[in-house]
């Protein structure tokens, strides 16, 4: 008897588990998959909600899908590649018209994308690229040019460096495209000035606690730090906390350059705690829906579409902050 109850209870528990899984898997319920109407069904496999930037990105895609009449199936992979692959496979089974996703890491996508190709479902990459020899696996890549973002940060560094400068770098998630490219672009530019040196570089996983913990360790192990280059605002914000705890003034004693320009980052920039932010625009929903419609109709699209982006100094941040959406 007791055994039966136990079994029943574990079944219920397991059902609850799977319900959670599929609950987060499908964002907008009943899709008229397969029907030949005007409605496009799009499966979107998001990385996660690791930062304010990502949340703004998600919101833009959801809002613009609604506005464009696209039936969006949305999934959140919680920063895990296997979850994203699972989501993409389920979209293939559901026969969506187009799949879009932001790959959590650069490699390991060939098999699942080949499955999509065989099922004749076009794939659009958003915001992050993949590293694959076979470019026929996806139709187009819509997103920021991370190398260019790194170059912009490097340019500012070169222009504002006076004398020998020691830079510490807070990298994004190891293996992620923005981490690799932002590092590359920055190094490319500072190579022109040999007295700017990256003295330490570690991953802070794009999170505030990561940025804070790494910066705390750097402050103890590095005798002289002039500049922090963080691959996103959140790690920069964590570094600010660590610098304050060390009794130094962020933005003055130690200058900070970050990438993204989310609201919290912009506020810190306007306060003078960050010195320069390179924008990485998350509001690509509109461009994505336009591309999706073209791809589904079979029209030609460019293999690379870059989002429009700028940079912010402290004065520009003060002006832009009140109207910032995210």
């Amino acid at each position: 008897m007791l055994k039966k109850i136990t079994t029943a209870a574990s079944v219920i528990a397991l059902c609850a588990l799977t319900a959670c899984g599929s609950g987060s898997g499908t964002g907008s319920g009943s899709g008229n998959t397969g029907s030949a109407g005007d409605t496009i069904t799009m499966g979107f496999a998001q990385v996660g909600a690791e930062s304010g930037w990502r949340t703004a990105n998600t919101k833009s895609i959801q809002d613009e899908a609604k506005a464009a009449g696209v039936d969006l199936k949305f999934s959140d992979a919680q920063q895990k590649q296997e979850n994203q692959i699972k989501a993409i496979r389920s979209y293939i089974q559901q026969k969506v018209k187009v799949i879009a996703f932001s790959p959590v890491v650069e490699t390991g996508w060939d098999t699942v994308l080949l499955e999509a190709k065989r099922a004749n479902i076009p794939v659009i990459l958003t915001d992050r690229a993949i590293d694959s020899d076979d470019t026929s696996l996806y139709k187009t890549f819509l997103g920021s040019d991370f190398v260019e973002e790194g170059r912009k940060a490097g340019d500012w560094m070169v222009q504002n460096a006076t004398g020998p400068t020691n830079v510490v770098e807070l990298q994004g998630t190891t293996g992620a495209a923005p981490a690799i490219d932002r590092k590359k672009g920055f190094e490319e530019k500072i190579a022109a000035k040999p007295d700017i040196k990256v003295v330490a570089s570690q991953t802070g996983d794009f999170t505030r606690s990561g940025g804070k913990q790494v910066m705390e360790a750097f402050l103890k192990s590095q005798p002289k730090i002039d500049v922090v280059y963080a691959h996103n605002d959140d790690m920069g914000l964590g570094a600010i906390e660590a610098i304050k705890a060390a009794g130094k003034v962020p933005g003055k004693d130690i200058k900070i350059i970050t990438v993204d320009a989310v609201k919290d980052g912009m506020a810190a920039l306007a306060n003078g705690e960050i010195n320069f932010i390179v924008e990485c625009n998350p509001l690509l929903g509109k461009q994505l829906m336009e591309l999706a419609k073209k791809v589904v109709k079979g029209e030609e699209v460019p293999a690379r579409v870059v989002t429009v982006e700028g940079t912010f100094t402290q004065e520009q941040a003060k002006a832009a902050l009140p109207t910032r959406q995210y």
Partner: peptide
Amino acid sequence: ISSNVSAADANNA
């Protein structure tokens, strides 16, 4: 964890 960075990060905390 959350107080250390004065922020709640539901995904990573």
